[in-house]
């Protein structure tokens, strides 16, 4: 029997995912501008790997292929992997990460809608633990290598990168302080860093801006609510601001943190992942604020180049608890109403 409601909004999972992909385009455009077209190849590669893995897993799990393959969720995961990984990562690293994301982090947990961890971030975390070296090699921005050279690096494994590889600004700061020369300050460390831009490293800040633009569009499209990006960026700004005010020479500015690394990507595209994130309004605030805090501390005091992935993954683990504890009151049962 066909039951009520008999009418539906013309919405679908596919449309939601498609919008997310579209919203990534400004960021990708900036990426190409500053780092060259290699990222497009990486994106394509990741997408193909993701679709293949998805098809395989759907087949193994006896699910309708056509419906799920075209839902776009695999592509979103693939794109996030490609964008979160260092540019010019070797092809096998991207493929392995995507496979891990789809096969392990998504399907072994039950497929679309069931994964407790953001697949792209799970893959990022595993790879950064497994290949710390590869995961912190970043090419110099603003002087994109020729396309052919980029392909060589990605596919032929030409790892004579010394000329171009450098740390990200975040990394540069961390290593400067970690190297134990007590004299390092934010200013000197960033001055020593050739890619320093206006706020957080040349190129990166524009890419981050691109993500922010796309994210705001998604917000306007009501793909997600304001809670997560606001809480994430707000908390990050607050905590970094507090530290910065306390010791400006030791801690970078909030702007540096907001536009550096994967903060914008995380705030608008990863922490907002509905499947692995909290779902109640208050829960979203707690979730995003927690992720931002962890991100900041890993960035500043941890050993990894960025903390967004770990921040989000750790908070992913708390989601069931957060959701349970933040159930909003029901109609007619607010404050003391029995």
């Amino acid at each position: 029997m066909i039951t009520s409601p008999h009418v539906y909004l013309p919405v679908s999972v596919r449309a939601v995912m498609a919008k997310v992909l579209v919203a990534l385009v400004p960021g990708i455009a900036a990426y190409v501008w500053f780092f060259g077209g290699g990222i497009l190849v990486t994106l394509a590669l990741a997408t193909l790997a993701a679709l293949a893995a998805e098809a395989l897993m759907l087949k193994l799990r006896g699910k309708p292929l056509a419906m799920f393959l075209t839902d776009g969720s695999a592509a979103v995961t693939a794109w996030l992997v490609a964008l979160a990984f260092p540019p010019l990562s070797p092809w096998w690293l991207i493929v392995a990460a995507t496979l891990f994301a789809i096969v392990v982090a998504k399907h072994l947990y039950g497929g679309l809608g069931q994964n407790p961890f953001n697949p792209a971030m799970a893959a990022f975390a595993v790879m950064i633990v497994a290949f710390p070296g590869l995961m912190s090699q970043w090419p110099a921005a603003a002087q994109p290598l020729p396309f052919a050279e980029q392909l060589r690096i990605m596919f032929a494994g030409a790892r004579h990168l010394d000329a171009m590889v450098m740390a990200t600004p975040l990394d540069a700061l961390r290593t400067a302080f970690a190297s134990g020369e007590g004299r390092a300050t934010v200013a000197t460390a960033l001055a020593a860093y050739p890619g320093g831009g206006l706020m957080a490293g040349k190129g990166w800040e524009w890419i981050a801006l691109g993500y922010a633009v796309g994210g705001l569009w998604l917000l306007q499209q009501r793909i997600f609510t304001w809670h997560v990006p606001t809480a994430f960026l707000g908390t990050l700004a607050l905590i970094s601001g507090a530290f910065h005010v306390a010791a400006p020479e030791r801690f970078a500015t909030p702007l540096f943190h907001l536009f550096g690394g994967a903060a914008m990507l995380g705030a608008f595209f990863i922490a907002t992942d509905p499947v692995s994130g909290a779902i109640t309004p208050r829960g979203k605030l707690i979730f995003a604020a927690g992720a931002a805090l962890i991100t900041y501390f890993i960035r500043v005091f941890g050993a990894y180049p960025d903390g967004v992935a770990f921040g989000i993954l750790l908070m992913n683990m708390c989601v069931p608890l957060i959701d349970m504890k933040t159930q909003p009151p029901v109609f007619g049962r607010k404050d003391g109403n029995p």
Binding site: V16, G113, I279, V330
Partner: peptide, 18 residues
Amino acid sequence: MPCIRCGACATVCPHELQ
């Protein structure tokens, strides 16, 4: 399709359920 926990349903529920 499976629920993707997008929360749209909770936003429109007039009885503020989940």
